[in-house]
Design a protein around this nucleic acid. Structure first.
Lengths: 340, 340
DNA sequence: CGGGTGTGCTTAAGCGGTTAACTCGACGGT
DNA sequence: ACCGTCGAGTTAACCGCTTAAGCACACCCG
């Protein structure tokens, strides 16, 4: 089946390709009657402009890129990305002429290399960057090559607009909630320390611990994988005077830790309360269901696209604050044990 | 930062753009010395051909498409897609000039519409189709418009090459394994009946049940969501002379069902054995860890890309059999209860 | 009735590559 | 010395679309 070009439409309408182009792009230069006729014919014949040809003249590719750089093992199970993609796609549906380009890289260097390649090949008009580090080199590279970008995470140097959410208030709320349940010994199993949001939460946690005058607290770092969550749990549960509540930075670590606790004969929530800083169906899939902070990840995807569109339209955009995570108490949290 | 074009390279090398093109594409027409020099300059200056310009002349976009059509709710948690994407990306890494275009649609019509659009816009060179139905209309549409495609699922009309795996033998093995553990009453919670692989597994299950002369069996259909798995479990567990083992068509339903069983005070595996027809880290994340069939989904992604590349290179490809799922016995299966 | 002024379209150049066709020397054979 | 051949480039057309510039015609005004 032959693909139609603009000249097929021009022939059918009895006008030049230029006129067709004006008609289709809503530009002046053709009469209302002609415009109508061209539009009708193009629609009836099912013509769509070639993205390649358009990209060449407009220097816009009509695609935005997302690069995911986590080990395949974690990727498969981590609901974060698919939720994000859902949000991105939902926002993109408003403008079907834009598509999403996805890449999975093996490391940060490959990620940067892919940005450079995409830019040089004019494959994407902009990108969404996730897992922002403190002093992330990627934003520098993107600014240097001039590839429009929006990052998910705390505002950094200011070169790249960020979609961020306040973690301090929810952290305060979560610690307060656990304190109200009688917990005086709370641990936190964070994500990798290189991530900016990890550090912010670390700080917020420390502050909340002080505010509530807890007896003891501790922060350890994992890598979002189930293994690291389980390992952290085993270590925490082996301590004397151990924690009675643990806040995990994602759902996978929380679930895995809960399994580890069960194996050690520590019952949740009677002897140990568990909170996940990431809500997904996973948290409701297990028993006890896991108390979690809903981060509205899908919404982050929507905001990221809107911000990127703004950059593409007017050349710049400011940081965007997303709604703060909200605590969803479920069965994995309960009153602190009297004698842990 | 200005993007380089082929004429920048031509200028730097002191030759015409035509010569640069010949040099870069390994075509005759330039001396070895010139080729060397051009290659070196292009590399040093970091030039990459514009995909748009290339697409225009070669009528190849250098991208392949994947459309996912499942509710956002299921998407986020279903490890299937990310595993598939991992495989696709791994295979694409061999040829960095090809990118992956991802779309999430709301229903099948939107999916078909997107295929048509992508084709008309020359956005992708080929697509990978998942969740094949019996007599799937999508393969017809793709064949009609001539968009190269590879499907994941049982071979159908033959218009589109399929990457498929035998489910019969593993089903036989699984039922045999449960029978050996003393189970005489086995249920199966399948995916939606419209999927081709669901029907094949239904048949295989029925046959295996006969082979092993089970006392009783039953197949009910869910929709891969946790809710449907839990609902099915509750219904099955409420029956008199209920099943002592259940095989689920995916991990999400299996996990959810296990949670429902726990809520009903039915212990796994003492009173109920659970098997998931899909292995992911999820199955190892919960306690008891879930016995599952590893379908090598990542491998399916790799095979799909290889097959698609074959179609793009030589115009056609045959069906490809992927390795059969293998049973990974874990803690969710055990000896049948003497008195269920 | 000549000259400005829109209107509605066509023409053609250009986006960044690819490639068929052509040019220009050098070389070899007779 | 002349012609044919070949290697190494160059030139220019083309892919499908956009858009500045051009052009023909109708209309209005003094």
């Amino acid at each position: 089946m032959k693909r139609l070009t603009i000249s097929d439409i021009a022939d059918a309408a009895g006008v030049s390709t230029g006129a067709v182009s004006y008609a289709l792009n809503g530009k002046p230069g053709v009469s209302a009657a002609t415009r109508e006729r061209v539009l009708e014919i193009a629609d009836r014949m099912g013509w769509r402009p070639s993205t390649a040809a358009r990209a060449l003249t407009r220097s816009r590719s009509g695609a935005i890129g997302l690069i995911v750089d986590r080990p395949a093992q974690v990727l498969g199970i981590e609901p974060f990305f698919m939720q994000l993609v859902s949000g991105i796609e939902a926002a993109l549906r408003a403008d079907p002429s834009t598509a999403l380009m996805l890449a999975v890289t093996e490391d940060r260097d490959a990620e940067i290399e892919t940005y450079r390649r995409w830019w040089a090949e004019r494959r994407v008009d902009g990108v969404i960057v996730v897992d922002l580090h403190e002093n992330d080199i990627r934003t520098g590279v993107l600014a240097e090559i001039g590839l429009p970008a929006v990052a998910l995470g705390y505002p950094q140097t200011g070169e790249v607009p960020c979609v961020w959410a306040d973690d301090a208030a929810p952290m305060e709320e979560t610690v307060g909630y656990l304190a109200a349940l009688g917990h005086r010994r709370i641990a936190r199993v964070a994500g990798p320390g290189r991530f900016a949001h990890t550090l912010r939460r670390d700080e917020a946690f420390t502050r909340a611990v002080e505010t509530h005058r807890l007896e003891w607290s501790k922060t350890v770092h994992g890598d979002y994988s189930g293994d690291s969550g389980a390992r952290a749990a085993r270590r925490l549960l082996s301590e004397r005077d151990r924690a009675t509540a643990v806040i995990f930075d994602n759902d996978v670590m929380a679930l895995s830790a809960m399994a580890a606790a069960q194996e050690m004969g520590v019952s949740v929530p009677a002897q140990l309360s568990i909170v996940s800083w990431d809500d997904s169906a996973l948290c409701r899939l297990v028993r006890p269901a896991v108390t979690a902070l809903d981060r509205h990840i899908t919404q982050h995807g929507v905001l990221a696209i809107e911000t990127l569109n703004e950059i593409l339209a007017v050349g710049a955009a400011g940081h965007v604050q997303a709604p703060a995570p909200i605590l969803m108490p479920r069965a994995s949290t309960g009153r602190a044990p009297l004698d842990p």
